[in-house]
Design a protein around this nucleic acid. Structure first.
Lengths: 303, 303
DNA sequence: CTGTTAGCGCCTTCAT
DNA sequence: ATGAAGGCGCTAACAG
């Protein structure tokens, strides 16, 4: 029968199905513009999932300062265009988003949410452990004065990575020095500016900088290179995220692999399972992270 | 009345509208995985357009080796999920795609298509002129032995950039030397490998390398740095595309600005105008490109 | 278990 | 001009 159906060129009309079932068979991934640099790599995976599960996937940028973002979100929900959302950071921290979704009881899965105690399903990387490992690795290379670049306050990873860093220092009895901690917002410009500041500390100049994100690490590398210093000879730099460019820059970046595509993929799968009312083993998933050692880190210079 | 409607919380059901009008109000952007590195920057713009025009926008990866890609594309068309397509390179060169779209008379707009003589509307950058300008700039710096990295044969830009390069050499009476032209496929690995080869040419070693794309230029820079050579002191490197990372690497990359987001934006706008049967001024759009001079290029070393 | 029918919510057509 | 009714193609509920 199936073959006969195919032979006639028949295909169901998706709009009619959607209307009859009052479902859109579409999920939305809410993204903060610029947060995911490697969206294109992500797209393939996401779309595969959509294909397998017969769900369409819509990527929606959410940028709070634009009222347009909010309007769009509202219309997606009101007009029944979307069955559920994957919320990427820092959108979960946005009050408009969170109240809207809970008010209308729209199914959602969050990625790396600020608040892990709520009942909302999530997928998260183990930022604490990753930062701890990286810091221990640096300490093992002989670094004691380590600069750290903090991220935005509306992302949980910002805190966890700082805590992991600090815990590793503590466990090796290395003093935690406030002047070495800088607020970079995890942008290129922030990493650049804060690294310049750290390098002007004179006697207190760090021998390594743990940029909290790869993006900030690029800024740090740029600043260091501009000053004509050698990486890793005079100073080591490392990041966190392992985005695809990190192996293409010189020197290639030591970082923590935090598979953004995998997070989104798992979140999308989880959401679809929820929408299909399939039984789920677990609705809170923690993904371990691991170090990727490349060329931007080395032994601390012997003063 | 409108305000009253809003007050009651009314919103039209999109599925019903789609069914009644037999349209999906959705367009699809077909992308070759990895071709657009800065998809995330693009997304914001694209989605804005969708919002303004009440069209949903679906990004679909197309990777010919996966039969899944083809099946998905077929189902999008058969099931009336899509009103029209934006075709990004090199998808226009894929026979399955082109015959499918023409057979079913699906509206489409192409970006940088191989074939500009067909009736299909397109948006394209002026690759010939961009490559010509860049080459003249290098010649002006005193470079005469210039390596060039070719791109894949299924993209028009590959040819136009090479022609522009060659034309500039000719107009300055600099001999065109086959051994300096290499096939990099415009990947990082290709740029890396071919640059290594070029640097082993001994007496014929180029003093500048015009990588046909930024991605290939990253590979070139990596190779040069690995050999401990100074950029731009000993060798100049430049790219083409001006993707966002090119200003973040060290040394920042001299390149030709070819606004990928703008191309896609224009193409999507054009497609939507076509779908709405709006009168169009022009259905073949050529976008000029311009040089972006950064730190990776400098005067040719005086032998 | 198979076959028939009503209805999803909107748009368009036709009649008033 | 305004208003009522039919139909888009599928699904779910119901009857046989």
């Amino acid at each position: 029968v199936q073959t006969a159906i195919r032979a006639t060129g028949y295909a169901p009309n998706i709009s009619a199905r959607r209307l009859a079932q009052n479902k859109s068979f579409t999920i939305c991934i809410l993204m903060y513009p610029g947060f995911y640099q490697e969206a294109s790599e992500m797209l393939s995976k996401i779309m595969d999932i959509g294909y397998e599960s017969n769900y369409d996937i819509m990527i929606q940028p959410y940028f709070p300062p634009h009222s347009r973002s909010r309007n769009k979100l509202v219309s997606l929900i009101y007009e029944h265009r979307i069955d559920g959302f994957v919320i990427t950071p820092p959108c979960d921290a946005d009050e408009f988003v969170s109240t809207l979704l809970t008010t209308y009881k729209v199914p959602q899965v969050q990625i790396n949410p600020i608040n892990r105690t709520s009942q909302i399903p999530y997928v998260a990387g183990d930022d604490y452990q990753g930062a701890f490992s990286m810091t221990e690795y640096l300490i093992g290379l002989g670094h004691e004065k380590i600069g750290f670049l903090k991220g935005p306050r509306n992302m949980r990873a910002s805190f966890d990575r700082l805590y992991g860093f600090r815990a590793a220092l503590d466990s090796h009895r290395i003093p935690y020095c406030e002047s070495l901690i800088r607020d970079s917002e995890w942008t290129f410009d922030g990493g650049y500016a804060m690294t310049k500041e750290l390098l002007l500390l004179g006697q207190e100049t760090p021998t390594a900088i743990f940029a909290g994100s790869d993006e900030a690490a690029y800024g740090a590398i740029y600043a260091v290179q501009e000053l004509g210093m050698d990486i890793p000879g005079q100073i080591s730099i490392c990041g966190y995220d392992d985005i695809s460019f990190s192996k293409k820059i010189w020197p290639s970046l030591t970082t923590v692999h935090q598979p953004a595509e995998e997070n989104v993929e798992l979140a999308a799968r989880l959401l679809i399972d929820i929408l299909k009312n399939e039984p789920l083993k677990d609705n809170k998933i923690l993904i371990p992270s691991h170090l990727v050692i490349r060329r931007s880190t080395g032994k601390a210079p012997t003063a």
